[in-house]
Amino acid sequence: MSVYHLNGPLTDEDVKKLKLGDTVYISGECFTCRSRLQKYIFDEKHTLPFSTEGRNILIHNGPIIVKENGKWKLMSFMPTSSIRFEKWGAKSVDEWNLKMIVGKTTMGASTMAMMKEKKCVHVSPRSVSPNLWIDSIEVQDVHLYDELGRIEAAWFFKVKDLGPFIVDIDAEGNNYFDKLDGEIAERKQKALKDLGIEEDFEFTKLY
């Protein structure tokens, strides 16, 4: 497994070299997104009020940001579960030309197919460590604050060596967790057997 320090905006070459399980740290300009933003743009047909051209890293996150002495202060940050946003995942990758999504819980088949087509990767943390991340993040600006609220607005972050994150969807549409699923399923059969629960056990159907 390799370790990469990447600088945004990311290119196809930057992400194509990443393999499942590789570790990445990212620097550059990113923006945050939760479902309210995607619903606002894709379902309610508003125009994204900023360009993603120099900012093609999306972070699924609803940060805690307070205003202190007239300046934004980031209190906490942790990538959130991407699978919740699967409905708009492919559209986001396609229309916003994303090269990297930082999230958690990976994404589903339709987003993965679009990520393969457009060359985009998904990365996840292996810890819950807001305090090891917030010093790497500078809050630059915010869009749609009044429309979407403090948590679901699109925050602009400038990050420096933010990570480590693990590559869990590569630019070829492969998923780190699919491989793990098989290994866990095998161990689960053994665990059930050890508890005396036979493979052919079936629940009595009550409903």
Binding site: T23, I64, M75, S76, M78, S127, V128, P130, N131
Partner: peptide
């Protein structure tokens, strides 16, 4: 890698008490 993740989480949690910020966002 899992060991590193557990350590990073514990380190961050201990910093939360000092910095008076949330353990998780």
């Amino acid at each position: 890698e899992a060991k590193k993740g557990l350590k990073a989480t514990l380190e961050s949690m201990e910093l939360s008490a000092k910095r008076e910020n949330p353990l998780c966002v």
